[in-house]
């Protein structure tokens, strides 16, 4: 951590001089904080990749409140940063205001839609990715009971949960899914202890695979599942490496792509506004398979999940989107 901080200091010092005139990318994180090993860290990874490939420095900022988020987006825009990417739906209204004030600056927002000529809105079909990991969970479960632990109780997280349930039921029609939300405040994104307690509770009820869609809270979920020799499913970033042998898979949401592509497209002068909905087909969401979890995914599971993936892409399997009617099929 200290080393990262120090290198950041060095980065900050360099960025003042190294920024080229044309593209000065900036990134505003969600209030969960940059190093959450999940959503925001995925965005960070995308920006880092861009820096590595092009050598162009970027600036980033971690707001602590809604007012600060708007200030940060505006500060970046007014100081000539372009493009300005804001990750999290929390910046929707801020983006609407600031993007209208700076029509010549290019903006991008992740997880929400802002309908302006200079804003790219990147949204994900989380239900599709969650369906895939749900399918795996359903197949891996021996008890026929699996769990879902969300962060804050907001529509976005219900969308994750809804896709997951459908996936589980596709594998085992009579499977039981326990669902818990960590809380109703922003603290729910960063409460690993509570996440662990909820996991314990679900394990006591018989769940043996638990999917966490809860930012940094999920770290507690994964930890507790590992401690109790149960399986867990990570989210947003590939979290398989956190507890090899216990993390069944991760629902990878390529937030890094949204950040990377926006930076890159602006640099190459190919920036387009409008909505990009990234699903399984566009590789925007996926299940993670690597050395850390390949012993957990049997050949049969792999075949089933690949088939489901192909079916979703082909359109023969439609995963219901919670957002479309605010409800989830039972």
């Amino acid at each position: 951590m200290k080393r990262t901080l120090l290198s950041l200091i060095a980065l900050g010092a360099m960025s003042a001089t190294a920024l080229s005139a044309e593209v000065k990318p900036a990134l505003v994180y969600g209030t969960g904080g940059k190093f959450d090993k999940s959503f925001n860290e995925a965005a960070f990874a995308g920006a880092e990749q861009f820096k590595k490939e092009t050598g162009i420095e970027y600036r980033d900022f971690e707001p602590t409140s809604d007012t600060q988020g708007e200030q940060a987006i505006r500060n970046f825009a007014s100081r000539g940063y372009n493009p300005v990417v804001a990750v999290s739906f929390a910046w929707t209204s801020a983006m609407e205001k600031v993007a209208a004030e700076f029509p010549d600056t290019k903006f991008a927002i992740v997880d929400s839609v802002v309908d302006l000529k200079n804003v790219r809105s990147v949204v994900y079909k989380e239900e599709e990715g969650s369906y895939l990991v749900g399918l795996l969970a359903g197949m891996a479960s021996k008890t026929g009971k699996v769990g879902f632990i969300g962060g804050m109780d907001i529509p976005l997280i219900r969308k994750f949960g809804c896709g997951y349930v459908q996936g589980v039921k596709a594998a085992k029609a009579d499977a039981q899914v326990f669902q818990n939300m960590t809380g109703t405040t922003g603290a729910a994104w960063n409460d690993p202890v509570r996440g662990g307690e909820l996991t314990k509770n679900q394990i006591d009820q018989g769940a043996d695979v638990i999917y966490a869609a809860a930012g940094a809270t999920g770290l507690g979920v994964l930890q507790t599942a590992a401690d109790n020799k149960k399986l867990s499913i990570g989210v947003d970033s590939n979290q398989n490496h956190l507890h090899p042998g216990s993390v069944l898979t991760s629902m990878v949401k390529r937030v890094d792509l949204a950040v990377y592509n926006t930076f890159k497209d602006t640099k190459d002068d190919k920036f387009t506004a409008g909505v990009q909905a990234l699903g399984v087909k566009e590789d925007g969401v996926a299940y993670a398979l690597d050395d850390n979890n390949k012993s957990l995914i049997t050949a049969e599971m792999k075949a089933a999940v690949e088939k489901a993936k192909a079916d979703i892409i082909a359109g023969t399997v439609k995963v219901h989107d919670y957002m479309s009617d605010k409800s989830c099929p039972k």
Binding site: S93, S112, D153, P155, T184, M323
Partner: peptide, 18 residues
Amino acid sequence: MNYLLVRVLIVPGKMAPE
């Protein structure tokens, strides 16, 4: 408030609970 904003007062179709 979370219940009201997520279920009742939210603008239909919007992601942000407001």
